[in-house]
Amino acid sequence: MSDLTPDRTADPTGSAGVESKGGDRAQYGMCAGLAGLGVLLLVDAARLAPVQSSNDALGPKPVPIVLGVLLLVVALFYAIDIWRGGVGAAEEGEDVDLSAGSDFKTVGLLVVVFGVGAALIAPLGWVIAGSLLFWGCAFALGNRHHIRGLAIGVAISLITFYAFAIGLGVNLPAGILDGIL
């Protein structure tokens, strides 16, 4: 299969084939997508009902408003950069063997681990299901230190369980460990 990517190695700026003013018009689609997402966030934030709570003076509106404005600003700066002729640097290369096939065994194992983890959260609780999820993902990705992987999974699950409970006030399911945790 032939590579149709233009060779930009001779041009140190990486702007071969790009007009100096007006830029690469195909990248304006990304600008439009960013701007559209920003407008969507702002419209949805405007439709949020005001919260009448003494515990939360700000309510849920500030985060989507800030993110929407930031997305619009990034889209504007990106469009200006494209119009001035700016292009991203061409990739120098990666440690990826493009001739190698897909590893469907690993992908399949990860799908099974995530499915089993999702099914076990309610009956066993987050700490046990999360520990098995982290250990299973590590195993699928090639870790063969089973005890250490499981210990790290337990530690991460306990940390996230208490971070959600204490830090955010969100109770994750305790499952069979209810009353112990």
Rank of each mutant, 00 (worst) to 15 (best):
T160D: 01
L158S: 07
H146C: 10
G169H: 05
H146Q: 15
H146A: 15
R144C: 01
G142S: 10
A163L: 11
G167D: 02
A155I: 06
A165W: 10
L141F: 12
L168M: 12
S157A: 13
L158T: 00
S157L: 01
S157K: 04
L150E: 03
I152A: 13
I166V: 12
G149E: 05
Y162C: 01
H146Y: 14
A163D: 02
S157V: 01
G169P: 01
F161A: 03
F164Q: 11
I152E: 08
G149I: 00
L141P: 15
S157C: 04
L168N: 02
F161R: 03
G142R: 12
I147E: 11
L172K: 05
A163F: 14
V154Q: 06
A165R: 14
L141V: 05
A151S: 12
I152N: 12
G153N: 09
I147L: 15
A151P: 01
A163Y: 06
G142I: 02
I152G: 02
I159F: 13
Y162I: 04
L168Q: 02
L158M: 10
G142Q: 08
A155S: 13
L150N: 09
F161S: 01
L141W: 11
A151W: 00
G142V: 06
V154K: 06
R144W: 03
L168K: 00
G149Y: 02
G167V: 01
V154I: 11
R148Y: 09
G169F: 05
G149P: 08
L172R: 03
I159H: 06
A163M: 09
A151I: 03
T160I: 10
L168G: 01
F164E: 11
V154L: 12
I152R: 04
L168F: 08
V170I: 13
F164L: 00
T160W: 11
I152M: 10
G149A: 14
L141R: 09
A155H: 09
F164G: 06
G167N: 02
V170M: 08
V154A: 12
T160N: 05
G142N: 09
A165E: 14
I147Q: 13
S157N: 02
L168W: 01
R144I: 06
R148N: 07
V154F: 09
H145C: 11
N143T: 08
R148A: 14
I159D: 07
L150F: 15
G153D: 07
A151L: 15
I159G: 13
G153R: 02
I156E: 08
T160H: 04
I147Y: 10
I156A: 14
G142F: 04
Y162Q: 03
